[in-house]
C-alpha cells in the first residue's frame, strides 16, 4: 500500500513535468511550471484520500492497518475514535499550542503521540512516519472547513 502511494505520486509528478526537458536535471523538484490538468489534480486528490482512508482505519484501531504500517497504537484495546468520534474534540486547526498534559508547546503530531503513549498505552511513532502523516491527513480532512485558529485553548 505504501509503495503504491509513492508510485502514484511519481506518476502525477511526471505528468506535470512533461515538456520541461531543459530543466530535466531538476525535474523532481520542479513543480507547477505548467498548468495542472484535471487528471493531475485527480491524481493528487486520490493520493490524499488514500492517506485519509488509511488514517481513518488507524484512528479507529483497525488491526490490519496497524500491521500494514508496522505500528502498535494501543495495547489497551482503546482506539483514538473512542474519545474522538468523527475526529471531534481534537481541534487540529488550533495547533500548535501549549498543551497542558505535556506541559509543553506542542504540535498536533506531538499530541497524537501523547494519546498513543498515555491513554492507549501503545508504542509512540516517529513524528514524520507514514502512519503519522496518514493520521494527520484523516484528522485534518475530518475537520475540513474549521477556521484556522492556532494557539487557541
Amino acid at each position: 500500500m505504501k509503495g503504491m502511494s509513492k508510485r502514484y505520486l511519481l506518476a502525477a509528478g511526471c505528468a506535470v513535468c512533461v515538456g520541461l526537458g531543459v530543466f530535466g536535471a531538476v525535474q523532481e523538484s520542479a513543480a507547477h511550471k505548467d498548468p495542472h490538468d484535471a487528471a493531475t489534480l485527480k491524481a493528487f486528490q486520490d493520493l490524499f484520500m488514500e492517506q485519509v482512508i488509511l488514517g481513518d482505519r488507524l484512528f479507529h484501531g483497525d488491526p490490519e492497518a496497524q500491521q500494514e504500517m508496522g505500528v502498535n497504537l494501543s495495547k489497551t484495546g482503546m482506539a483514538c475514535a473512542m474519545c474522538h468520534p468523527i475526529s471531534s474534540d481534537i481541534h487540529p486547526h488550533e495547533f500548535p499550542k501549549f498543551q497542558e498534559q505535556m506541559s509543553e508547546f506542542a504540535t498536533l503530531r506531538d499530541m497524537v503521540n501523547w494519546c498513543i503513549e498515555k491513554p492507549n498505552e501503545g508504542e509512540v511513532i516517529d513524528v514524520n512516519s507514514e502512519a503519522m502523516k496518514a493520521l494527520e491527513a484523516y484528522m485534518y480532512w475530518s475537520n475540513k472547513g474549521s477556521v484556522l485558529d492556532p494557539g487557541r485553548h
Binding site: 471531534s88 475530518s142 475537520n143 477556521v147
Partner: peptide, 8 residues
C-alpha cells in the same frame, strides 16, 4: 469552532 465530516 469545529466543522466535522463523518468518517469515510
Amino acid at each position: 469552532n469545529q466543522i466535522l465530516t463523518p468518517r469515510i
